[in-house]
Every structure is written in structure tokens, then in C-alpha cells.
Design a protein around this nucleic acid. Structure first.
Lengths: 194, 194, 194, 194
DNA sequence: AATGAATGAGGTTTCATTCAT
DNA sequence: TATGAATGAAACCTCATTCAT
């Protein structure tokens, strides 16, 4: 449908960059290595990308655009933004863009994307807090919420790193959902007794 | 008992190194910054440490020795190595050596300690697998186990990063224990039905 | 008379190059910037010009041809080449080709045109020397002459950088002429006393 | 008297840098060339200087400090700051620091020192304007003043580039002084008639 | 007539490391 | 013990230039 032809070289560079970012993180990724693996010289890279950061932007941009769109659509459907169904849609979406998603979550230390990740964490924490309130707990420890959020994110991350087919992925995601839900309700009960 | 007096300079270097490793990770840590913050020159650092790696070894060595000792003692007491009591002892131990523990878990990308971490993960996974077997599930998905282990480790890590007192730490650890246990049993039930 | 139609693209490139040379000097001028500002790609530039140097040649060539012609005509009219009238004709000529003239005088550090500038300086110095001889001074210090010449050239240069209309320009040029002449004769008197 | 020993290597680097700056200007100066000519590697340069700019600062700093001190002392002695005596003291001072002075005046395009040069030009222009007022001309053309100032500065610059002894320098400076003064008064007369 | 892609050298800077003293 | 000096490789990036189309 689209008649934009993306240069093969550019694709090679992007793929080599993805690999390098995944292996070493953004900061420790070497443009030289990327170019060598892509079979081009440094100058070629700089024909397609203004600098290292724009290379990262090119990889993460589409992922983030889609993510924002998905979040918006989830929020307009139901006010919570933290429904179980939303979770599964999110997982499916991220899984379709696995490499970029892993880079965003796990390989962006020290970049501007840390801020975005922080925002996402905030959203997750708000979700947990409203669930705690729904369970009758108003003064939940902030650090505990943070731990829960980070664990959930870590779960997502490792799910992305796996090689499941879409079907098996759903099963695992459901298993994880059961784990999280039961764990959460147990936690609520423990906290209520105090 | 020991009459080895550790030079104050060495201590300064180690402390500066811990801070730098925590902030930037091992690879992005700059020996120059460490030396500057320690108030010494590079030559001094290289008098005490053969190279950057040995500096990391010095920081992580005691932690790892103690860890191995603790694991051995837990295994000789009861065969599982994954008892609730073992968990809490482990948390307490790591919390006593928080800085080194965080460095080991979170700041060693690309170093030989990734292997050790892998071993620790293996241990955790074996623990989970034996618990699954005890719950009547023999063929649990390896990747699922890995996700559970990584989430638990992430929980530990964030616990270590907090600033709880020993007393509060226990409470949080218990809460997390409840979360993990309930989640786990729910998971067993889900998997049994299949 | 001539039926050579100069391509619009070529003109755009030349204009963009003039601007860039004026702002940054020849050496620090970037062909990329020039092309970007001209709205073409590097390939287009290299279709019209063999290299960066030829681009400069194209800009300075006509100026220099005209300059040589003017000098010849001045020399054939009267032998001095340094008459007041010659000065004013020269100023007018350069003012008509201001951009190129400024580039030649002020933006060619490290290029072959430094040699030409040197030749021009030599001409000016010969003029001064013959004026000194006419004033009865045969052994004037060469360095002093050089300073006088460089100052005069700097005066020209700043005149070119101004935005005077032709009429006002003449007034200023006359003022400067008075300055130079009076200064020169005072100088002759000082030197005679020694 | 002073017991600060400046490393020989540092001196070599500074000398090589001065030469390179003088020949190519600051921007086109190559640190690689400087290091090669100083007989060291790039790393050595960065032991002594934070970056290219600091290398320039080190060369120009003392010159500028002395310049400011001299200006202050001239202003406190007599209010004008533009006396003939001040001129000659300034020339002598600059001549003692010729290389740095030439670099400051002629090799700093595009650096922060352009601002300082601008300030110096402003001072010169103010001096000219007050002289014009003293001569009965209140509305002198700003551009004309600028041309006069730039010519004077160019005279200084070429004086600095010469190889006179202190004694001969004074003579030349006096000759130039006569040139400038007579020129100036002639100019005043021309402007009065209008 | 002009584009878009690619090269390779060189730019400034940071790094871990070494070594004479 | 520790300093200060120096190395050389590698980092990101820009440049003038070339070439197939």
C-alpha cells in the first residue's frame, strides 16, 4: 500500500543497531560495531541518521507512537486504564514489537527515554493504588507499590524476551495474570489485618 | 583477629567506586571519576588494584563469599534451599551488604558476574521447579519459571534499594512473601486444570 | 552578447556559497550547508564545480579579471598606479562587486588567493615607496610601508562592508583620502628630520 | 623567584599550539598536528588541558589579565584612556606578548574572544568620538569611526607581526602616531566644512 | 541536470592502563 | 605509598568527494 521504499542499507543499519543495543545497551553500543555489522562505513550511518540518538529514536519512535495510541484507546473505553483486558492488549502489542520494546524497557539507561519509562511506571503505580483503595486500603506504602510495579514490568520484559507464539503467549500471560491477581488479594488481606 | 590494616586510601577508592558503579554501572563507570571522588590519582588506584575488574572483584568478593556460605548452610539444614525461612535469611544478608548486592544484581552488565547471576537464577529456578513438583506439576514451562525467578529477583533488588529499617524490612518482606506464595499456589491450580 | 545561459541552480549555489564564505571563511565553509541553503544536493554542486576550490574560483574569477583590467588601464593612463583618481576608481569597482571583494580580502586564509593578495599588497607598497621617493625619502623602512598598505586595505575592506549608497560612499572615500594623504605627508616630514 | 615549575611538555604543547593557531587560526587548528609537533600523543594534551578551548585560554589568559590591569592603570592616571602615552604603553605591552596578542587579534574568529575584541573596538571608537567632539564635530558618522578604529588596530597588528627591537619599535610607533594624528586633524577639517 | 547513497580520512575527546620517580 | 605524566585505542561526529543512476 505504502510506496515509501526504505533503503536496504538503512534497514541493515537499524537491524545491526537493534542487535547492538540489545546486547550492550544504548550507551555502550558502538556505532563502529553497528556499521561494521551492517557492512557500511560510519559516513553511511550519518547519511541516514543525524546522530546516535536519532538512531535510537528511529527504533523506538513507532513503538512509542503505537503505545500512546493504545493507551488512549484503552482510557476512552473504560476509565480505569488498568483492566485485565488492557493488560493483555498491551502485552500483545509489545510482543508484536518485541525488539524495540525490550530496548525501551531494558537498554535505555541514561537516555531521555528513562523519563518515559518513569511515566509508565507512574501509571502502573496509580493503577495499583486505586486497586488497593478498592480493596479498602487507603494508606498503602509507596515503596511496596513501586516494588509491585517493577516486578510486573520485569515479568512483561521477560515475556518479551521469550520466543512464544501468539497462542502460547496468551496462556502464559493468563498464568501470570492469575499469579498477580491472587498475590495481590493475599497482600490486601495481610495489610488489612494490621 | 586479622591484623591486616586496610589503608584508608583503599577504603576511599572502594567507596567512591561503589558510588560510581551504582550510578553508572560498571562499564560506564570512569576510573578517573572514582579517583577524583576518592581524592587520589590513578596511580594510587593501580597500586591497590590490578585493573578495573579487580576493583569490582574487591567490592563483590566478600558478598559472594558470604552468599555461598549462606547457601551451603541453608542446604545442609534442609534440602530445599527455598524455604520461607531461607528467603528471609537471604534478604537480611543481602540487606546488610546492600551496596554490593545492588551492584551485583543491577550494575554488572557485560562482566563475568553475569555468569554468577545466571547461576543464582538457576538455583532459584530449581527451587521453583521442585515447588511445582511438590504441587503436582512435573512439566512446568521453563520460561515461566524463569519469569517467576526474575520477578522475585527484581522484588529483592527493589527491596535493597529502599531505605527501610530492619524491622520494617521484615514486614515488607513478609508482605512480599504472602504475595509470592499466594500467587504461586494460584498458578499451580491454574496449571493443574489444563 | 554571450548566449551562455547560466543555470539557475548554479546561481543558487554560488549565492549560498558567497553567504557561507562571508560568514565562516573559505576553510570553515561547509559544502553541505551551502547545498542545503541552495536547495540542492552535493551531487548537483559537483556537477557544476570540480571541487570546493573551483567554487571559490568561480566566485572570485570575474572580480580578479576586472581588477587586472582596471589596474592595466590605470597604469597605461599614468605611470604611477597610485593616483587619487585611481584609488577612487578602484573603490568604486570593488564596491560594485562587494561580496566577492570581501571574500577575496577577508575570507581566503589558507588558499591560493593569499598569494594574489600578497601581489596586490606588493603593488600598494610599490606605490607608497614611489610616493616616499617623490617626497625625498629613498630608504623608507619596508615594514612601515607594509603597515601603511595593510591599513589602507583594511580601510577599503570596512568600506566594502558598509551599506552606503554610491553617493555617500564617495564622500566617505574622500574623507578617508584626506586622512591618508595628510597622514602620509606628516609622516614624510617626520622621516625627513631624522 | 617563582618555584612553580611548568612541565616542559606543557610548554612544548603551548608553543606548538601558538604556532598552529597563528598559522591556521583557532578553528582550523588541529590538535593532532599540535601534538605531533609537540612530540606527544593526544592524551598528553588532555592531561594538561581540559579541551581545545582551555588551551586557547591558557595562551590568552595572561595577556588579557595584563591588558585589563594596564587599562585600569591608564584610566586612573588620566580620565581619557586614549592619551598618546597610553597608546605607546599599550603597544609596548602587546609587543612583549606578541604571539598571544596576534592570536587574540587575528586568530580567534568564532571564539568567545570575539566579544572581548568587540569591547576593545568599542573603547577605541569611544576614544575617537570624544576626539571628534573635542574638534567640534558632534555628529560624526559611526561607520567612519569604525573604519578609523579598525585601521588603527590593523596598524597595531602589523606592528606586532614585525621583528623590531624595542628601540626601533618606538620610532615606528611614533611615526605611526604622527600619521594618525595628522590624518585625524585633516579629517576634522574636511568634516567641518560640510 | 541532478539525486541519493556511500566512502574514508580527519576532527575533538575520553578511556583504561603504564611507569618512572 | 602514591604522584604525575604519558600512551594509544576507541568513542561520536563532520568533512570533501565520488559514483551509479
Amino acid at each position: 500500500m505504502s510506496d515509501e521504499k526504505i533503503s536496504e542499507t538503512k534497514i541493515n543499519i537499524i537491524n545491526a543497531a537493534k542487535k547492538e543495543f540489545l546486547e550492550n545497551g544504548y550507551k555502550d553500543a558502538s556505532l563502529r560495531h553497528i556499521c561494521k555489522n551492517a557492512g557500511v562505513t560510519t559516513g553511511a550511518l550519518y547519511f541516514f541518521f543525524k546522530n546516535k540518538e536519532e538512531l535510537l529514536d528511529t527504533i523506538l519512535g513507532p513503538l512509542i507512537d503505537g503505545y500512546k495510541k493504545l493507551v488512549r484507546s484503552l482510557f476512552t473505553k473504560d476509565g480505569s486504564g488498568e483492566s485485565q483486558n488492557g493488560d493483555s492488549m498491551m502485552i500483545e502489542y509489545l510482543y508484536k514489537n518485541r525488539e524495540a520494546a525490550i530496548i525501551l524497557i531494558d537498554c535505555c539507561r541514561g537516555t531521555k527515554y528513562e523519563t518515559l519509562l518513569g511515566t509508565i511506571y507512574s501509571g502502573m503505580k496509580h493503577g495499583f493504588e486505586s486497586m488497593f483503595r478498592a480493596g479498602g486500603i487507603d494508606d498503602v506504602d509507596g515503596k511496596l507499590v513501586e516494588i509491585l510495579a517493577s516486578m510486573k514490568m520485569k515479568g512483561y520484559l521477560n515475556l518479551l524476551k521469550s520466543d512464544y507464539g501468539t497462542c502460547e503467549l496468551k496462556k502464559i500471560a493468563q498464568s501470570l495474570g492469575a499469579y498477580w491477581d491472587s498475590g495481590f488479594f493475599a497482600l490486601v488481606n495481610v495489610l488489612k489485618k494490621k
